[in-house]
């Protein structure tokens, strides 16, 4: 871990100003990803701006049209907040699918959105990685890529976004509220928050340096009754997803009025499958229709040498997640 200056921000404005002033400065919230990467010498900030005292940013409160979740609310707080559990159970379950109880007590909503890939080549400074060191090459492309992307990758990077929470936020059409360097706030629809790697895999998302996530907002929706987050992993808990599915349905009579299918572990960002959603809308919630949606979702998948299984697994996981979304006892 390289030496850095530590500052404890006392206001949003101060935090933003401190980070904006130094190109190599970083915000610190839960620290669960940043400190790990600093120990590995992957992240090398010279200035750390500690946000954890900005307690107003940890509030979760109802809004006229839904809910506002402060960026510093911990994963555990969000997952267990009564409003979230009742109105957005998909978000609760997605969060609870991630990491461990300890990490969920530390990790924040804002930090979780900023989580970087778990690609092993990214973590090892002895290996090439365009995300870590632009221009050095992608060791994973022809390497061991069982955990890597099947959608939206480029020859520069095949890493996946590793989080669970964001997959639910994509399904729930969240809005990310940001405070910029000039003190102004702006919002980014969640679907525009993360980026595909393209030629600039070093950029995980569309935040500018110094911009601070202050909240995530969710509008009211009709998904609370029929949603499920399914995570398939190599062990029963505390592991990253092989494939994850955030599934949500809103029914009108026995027809599907609205559908959300977002896949985790398959792309550089949460992968919303509008193909699957389109295949579901207007149909009945039957296994056959779920299968058709799953086929549609995977149609454009382009597996790599070691992850072809994700295509079939993804299909099956989509069907199962949709089935569980329909099962109100779960």
């Amino acid at each position: 871990m390289r030496p850095f200056k530590y500052a404890r921000a006392t206001s949003e404005a101060e935090a933003v100003q401190l980070v904006s002033a130094t190109p190599t400065a970083k915000f610190l919230a839960g620290g669960t990803n940043l400190l790990d990467l600093m120990k590995e010498d992957v992240e090398r900030p010279t200035q750390i701006v500690d946000l954890t005292r900005l307690s107003h940013l940890a509030q979760i409160r109802p809004t006229l049209n839904g809910i506002s979740i402060g960026a510093l609310a911990t994963n555990a707080q969000v997952a267990n907040h009564p409003l979230v559990r009742q109105n957005y159970p998909l978000l609760s379950r997605a969060i609870l699918a991630g990491a461990s109880a300890q990490i969920r007590n530390m990790a924040t909503v804002g930090g979780n959105l900023m989580q970087r890939t778990r690609c092993p080549y990214f973590y090892d400074t002895a290996m090439p990685c365009n995300k870590r060191e632009p221009g050095s090459g992608c060791a994973a492309f022809h390497g061991l890529n069982r955990m890597h992307a099947i959608f939206g990758y480029s020859d520069k990077c095949i890493a996946t976004y590793p989080g669970d929470m964001a997959n639910a936020l994509y399904a729930l059409d969240a809005t990310v509220k940001i405070r910029g360097a000039n003190g102004q706030e702006r919002t980014i629809p969640i679907r525009d928050f993360h980026r595909l790697p393209g030629d600039t895999p070093e950029q995980d998302n569309n935040l500018q340096h110094g911009e601070l996530i202050v909240a995530v907002e969710l509008a009211k929706n009709d998904f609370a009754k029929h949603s499920y987050y399914l995570k398939v992993r190599d062990r029963a808990s505390y592991a990253f997803a092989l494939v994850a599915v955030a599934a949500a349905l809103a029914l009108e009579g026995d027809r599907i009025k609205q559908a959300r299918v977002v896949l985790g572990g398959v792309a550089h960002k949460p992968w919303r499958s509008t193909e699957a959603e389109d295949a579901l809308v207007g149909k009945e919630a039957t296994e056959a229709n779920f299968r058709a949606a799953a086929e549609a979702a995977m149609k454009e998948a382009k597996p790599l040498a070691h992850n072809a299984y994700k295509v079939e697994l993804g299909k099956r996981a989509i069907v199962l997640a949709l089935q569980r979304a329909m099962d109100e006892t779960i």
Partner: peptide, 16 residues
Amino acid sequence: RIVNPNLQHYHVPVNA
């Protein structure tokens, strides 16, 4: 070179 020299990618059983 070993690509998973850590406990996040080298899985050992958890309680569950």
